[in-house]
Amino acid sequence: MTTREDAADLIRRMQECFNSRRFDQAADLHTPGFFSHPLGVAGFEAGREAWRAVTTRFPGMRVVAEDILVDGDRAAVRSVVEGIAVPDGDARPALFEIFRFEDGRFAEMWGAGTGFPASAGPEDLVGQTRERAPLTAECGPASAVVPATPVPSSSRDPRSGGRSGPGGAGQQQ
């Protein structure tokens, strides 16, 4: 089992490899059978290709984890993306990723992004450089993510801080 500290350290090490453009060193952080659900492929080579494509388009891009939540062999990560110009008033790009760990390394990844300029998300850029399996709404690029439907205020439970139902699935954004 991966500890919370080990998982957070592994995520920060991966982001440091990305931010310093040491893509080859990041390969050691992934299991041989690592599977990227957004890219639909096994192995880290496709991830390395995605990193190269996105940093070619955005040479100043950096990824910084703001939240890392660990539960057992999985971690959810919310990262801000720096170095990509967005129009005034637009939200800064962000990545939302879930990782599964095995033997202290990344074994699987699911992810989505938001706030990227049109056709400039990591999965979109890789798709422009090679053919890949079709992406699904569950793990595809931000354009495939369906936003949550706001719950009318009359149906919210005031005792749950604005959330409705178990787990607050209807929380307004």
Rank of each mutant, 00 (worst) to 15 (best):
T56G: 11
P150I: 08
G168L: 13
G113K: 04
V70S: 02
S36Y: 00
V81S: 06
F23V: 03
A148Y: 10
E97S: 13
L95A: 12
T2Q: 06
T114V: 07
G127N: 14
R12P: 06
E97F: 03
G113P: 05
G167M: 06
D73N: 14
A53V: 07
S36A: 02
G83W: 00
F96W: 12
L29S: 01
A148D: 14
F99Q: 06
D90H: 12
G168A: 04
A112D: 07
I84C: 00
V70N: 02
A46F: 03
V70Q: 09
S154N: 12
F96N: 09
A94M: 08
G127W: 15
A144T: 04
F44E: 03
S153T: 10
R22A: 13
G60R: 11
G47Y: 04
L69V: 15
L10R: 09
F96D: 05
H30C: 14
S160D: 10
E123A: 15
E131N: 14
N19C: 01
P59W: 05
F99G: 04
G170D: 01
R159L: 15
V80C: 08
P152N: 06
G170P: 01
G165H: 09
R105M: 13
F34K: 02
R12A: 15
T114H: 12
S153W: 09
G113M: 08
A53Q: 11
F34Y: 13
I84Q: 02
L10C: 13
P93T: 02
V145A: 14
A148E: 14
F18L: 11
T114L: 13
V145R: 14
I84M: 00
P38S: 02
V77N: 03
M14C: 10
A53G: 12
A85K: 06
R52L: 09
G33L: 03
T31N: 01
A46E: 10
F35W: 03
S79L: 04
R105N: 05
G127T: 13
W51R: 08
V151L: 15
R62M: 08
I68L: 07
V77Y: 01
A142W: 05
F96C: 13
P147D: 11
E123S: 14
D157Q: 12
A27N: 05
P122T: 13
V145N: 05
G170H: 02
P166Q: 10
G167N: 03
R105C: 11
G162C: 06
M61E: 00
L39N: 04
F23C: 00
M1G: 15
A112E: 08
G115F: 08
S36R: 00
G89S: 05
L10A: 07
T56F: 06
R62V: 06
Q173W: 05
F96V: 12
L69F: 15
T129N: 11
V86Q: 00
V64D: 01
D124K: 01
P117C: 11
M1A: 15
D24Q: 09
A169F: 11
W110Q: 09
V64I: 12
E45C: 03
L10I: 11
E5Q: 15
Q25M: 05
T55F: 01
V64W: 04
P32Q: 03
E97T: 06
Q15Y: 14
M14L: 15
G113L: 06
L95R: 04
Q172W: 02
F44A: 05
R78P: 04
G168T: 05
G140M: 07
E5G: 09
G162H: 08
R74C: 13
A76E: 00
